[in-house]
Simulated scan of single mutants.
Amino acid sequence: MPNLEEAIRERAYHLWIADGQPEGQADIHWLNAQREILTTSVESSGSNAAAAAPADPGLVATKSAKMAKVARSGKSKTRAA
């Protein structure tokens, strides 16, 4: 992101507006905006790296075999409430 501080400032302003323009909470809006911007930046760079990196065929085969084994055993990580 070319101008990180400007992006954070703009997002903090929008958060402040959405929060009803309260006084004395600039630091809260700034930190929330900073967290949002940085999280979005990290997630997008992570997905770009994953898309650009070639898959390791051995790793893919191993993961697929493990997933098939779990499926055959009937076990699942999700549980009904």
Rank of each mutant, 00 (worst) to 15 (best):
M1L: 10
W16I: 02
E43Q: 04
G24W: 07
D27P: 00
A12N: 00
K77V: 15
Q21T: 05
L15H: 03
T62P: 00
S64A: 14
R9E: 15
R9V: 07
A18Y: 02
A50P: 01
A65E: 06
E36Q: 05
I28M: 09
R72W: 13
A55N: 09
T78C: 14
S45H: 04
T40A: 12
K75F: 15
A61L: 09
A12D: 00
T62R: 04
T39P: 06
R79Y: 14
Q25S: 06
E43V: 14
A61D: 11
R72A: 15
L4E: 12
K63C: 15
A12F: 01
A53H: 05
H14I: 09
I8W: 01
G20W: 02
T62H: 06
R79T: 12
E10C: 04
A68T: 10
R9A: 14
E10D: 14
A61N: 06
L15R: 01
E5C: 03
P2I: 10
P54L: 09
A55L: 13
S44K: 06
G74T: 13
R35I: 12
R72D: 15
P54F: 07
E36A: 07
D27M: 09
L31T: 08
A33W: 00
A53F: 07
S41Y: 12
L38K: 01
K75D: 15
T78A: 13
R79M: 14
Q34D: 07
S47L: 12
E36F: 01
S76P: 00
K77C: 11
E5Y: 02
R9G: 00
R11F: 04
A53Q: 13
L59V: 11
A51E: 15
D19I: 05
A68Y: 06
